[in-house]
């Protein structure tokens, strides 16, 4: 469905220090610097896959999504989406895709969302019967029946985002790019959006690429992740495998019926947190069984669960590793 080979996007950016002197100097002489937003990445995505793009701010995730959706011209490399070259922006291609950006909206601000839906129906040339069915489904799934007649400006952020998603799906895109779709939403609304997105993917077999800083979004939606850092691809594979690679240790979460001394916990593993009624221990995977047996026999355990390390920690460790590798590489470079 999506093929990316040697993709690069470099920007030439005007750079000057602050101050009047620098401003005057920039009138006659401008210095530019090249920003390598994406610096040679390759991957393939199969039809119907749900893939998460992960990376710190400025990693190149959104730039990649914008290239895939035809908004940006790549500096180098080959990209195809369902057989189309995105930057040609052919009508057939634009009718197959949609990019939903949590920080940008397509809803008409002073008109009710129903007007944007109707506008999209006309622009995407959706037959009336199909439009009515799709709208009925979307209104039911997203529970927006009483919202679509109110002016957009009077809707809350969460309500707007649900309508935004409905507007994006009227033409039933086969490829859906989601850039921070749950940003700024409360926990309940984030969960609603995740459920809806997953249901859309399963019902229509749409390919889905998601970027999000909320790891819960990624964990709930994306069996596969692509990690991009400083424009380079640093991981492409299963989410579980990534966690195993970066942080193979498990977390043993203990609920205790009475307070225990730290000295009773430390022989079992590394103590991550310790509070009066609970403790979290980090242990090697092969030592999990032994630790559980020992904890049950030596501690007043009420409840016990075994978990992976939180995805946020896994990611920050991965980015720290990449940063350290880059620093080491730059030290080896001749001056």
């Amino acid at each position: 469905m999506i093929s990316v080979r040697g993709l690069r996007k470099h920007y030439k950016v005007h750079k000057r220090p602050p101050g009047l002197k620098a401003a005057l100097r920039s009138l006659v002489h401008r210095s530019y610097t090249t920003v390598k937003a994406v610096d040679g990445i390759s991957f393939d995505i199969r039809p119907g896959e749900r893939v998460g793009f992960l990376g710190p701010n400025g990693a190149g995730k959104t730039t990649t999504l914008k290239i895939l959706s035809g908004l940006l011209y790549p500096s180098e490399g080959e990209v195809t989406v369902d057989g189309h070259v995105p930057q040609r922006r052919e009508e057939a291609f634009l009718k197959k895709i949609m990019l939903v950006m949590g920080q940008k909206q397509q809803l008409l601000w002073d008109l009710p969302p129903a007007e944007t839906f109707e506008l999209n129906r006309a622009i995407y040339d959706v037959p009336q019967a199909q439009y009515k069915k799709t709208i009925t489904d979307l209104v039911d799934l997203l529970e927006i029946g009483d919202l679509i007649g109110k002016p957009t400006r009077q809707l809350s952020l969460g309500e707007r985002m649900k309508c935004e998603l409905a507007a994006a799906l009227i033409h039933q895109p086969r490829v859906l790019f989601l850039d921070e779709p749950t940003i700024g939403l409360d926990v309940a609304m984030q969960a609603t959006m995740r459920t809806f997105i997953k249901e859309y993917n399963e019902r229509y077999g749409a390919t889905l690429i998601l970027t999000s800083h909320y790891m819960d979004d990624v964990a709930a939606l994306c069996p596969r992740v692509i990690v991009i850092d400083k424009g380079l691809l640093s991981y492409d594979g299963g989410l579980d495998a990534l966690v195993q690679r970066v942080r193979p240790e498990k977390r043993v979460v203990l609920r205790l019926s009475e307070e225990v001394d730290a000295s009773r916990l430390s022989p079992l593993g590394r103590v991550v947190t310790h509070e009066p009624g609970s403790a979290v221990l980090q242990v090697r995977q092969e030592a999990v069984n032994a630790t559980i047996t020992r904890a049950l026999s030596t501690l007043p355990v009420m409840d016990l669960t075994v978990e992976n390390a939180p995805l946020e920690e896994v990611m920050s460790e991965l980015f720290a590793e990449s940063k350290a590798r880059r620093a080491a590489a730059s030290e080896l470079m001749p001056a």
Partner: peptide, 8 residues
């Protein structure tokens, strides 16, 4: 961006 995404 939002305008450019549309097939018109």
């Amino acid at each position: 961006s939002m305008r450019l995404l549309r097939p018109i």
